[in-house]
Simulated scan of single mutants.
Amino acid sequence: MPARQPFVQTSWIATTGNSFGAVEALFGAQHLGYCAAIDASCGAESWAQAP
């Protein structure tokens, strides 16, 4: 895991995700303390039910 490398500043880790990956990016930001997370099309799984 890159965050365990001595040269990595863990407070500067950011992530991005699309569709289900966006859900994972948000969970990571909440639970792992990423400095930023970009959510692209996170709601795509529920678009079929949207009016």
Rank of each mutant, 00 (worst) to 15 (best):
F20H: 12
G21M: 11
T10A: 09
Q49P: 01
M1F: 05
S11Y: 04
S11D: 13
C42H: 03
N18P: 02
W12P: 04
T16N: 14
F7M: 13
Q49L: 01
A36Q: 10
W12C: 14
V23R: 04
Q30N: 08
P2D: 11
S11C: 02
Q49C: 00
L26Q: 04
Q9H: 13
P51E: 01
C35Y: 02
A44N: 08
L26R: 03
A50T: 00
F27Q: 11
W12N: 15
V8M: 14
V23G: 02
V8P: 13
A29L: 02
T16R: 10
V23K: 03
A14E: 05
I38E: 12
F27T: 06
A22D: 08
W12V: 07
D39H: 04
G33Q: 01
A22W: 04
S46P: 01
M1K: 02
L26A: 08
A25P: 05
C42M: 11
I38G: 14
T16E: 15
T10E: 04
A40S: 13
D39E: 10
E24I: 13
A40I: 13
A50M: 00
S11A: 11
S11G: 05
N18I: 08
P6Q: 06
V23T: 08
T10W: 06
F27H: 09
L32F: 10
G43S: 00
Q49I: 00
T10M: 06
A40T: 06
N18Y: 07
I13H: 09
A44Q: 05
S41Y: 08
C42A: 09
G33N: 02
Y34S: 01
E24R: 14
S19R: 03
A44V: 04
G28K: 04
T15W: 06
D39W: 02
L32W: 09
W47D: 05
I38C: 14
A22N: 07
P2R: 14
W47L: 06
C42V: 02
W12I: 05
G21V: 07
A14T: 10
N18C: 04
W12H: 15
C42Y: 02
A3V: 03
T16P: 06
G28W: 08
C35K: 08
A37K: 01
L32H: 12
I13N: 07
V23F: 07
Q5S: 12
I38K: 05
F27C: 07
Q9L: 10
P2H: 10
F7L: 12
G33Y: 03
Q5W: 12
E24N: 13
I13P: 13
E24D: 11
Q30A: 06
P2Q: 10
G33R: 02
Q9K: 15
I38W: 12
M1L: 06
F20D: 08
E45M: 05
A48F: 00
G43M: 00
P51M: 00
A25E: 04
A40L: 10
V23W: 05
P51H: 01
G33D: 02
I13L: 15
A36M: 03
G21E: 08
H31F: 14
A48V: 00
C42E: 01
V23Y: 07
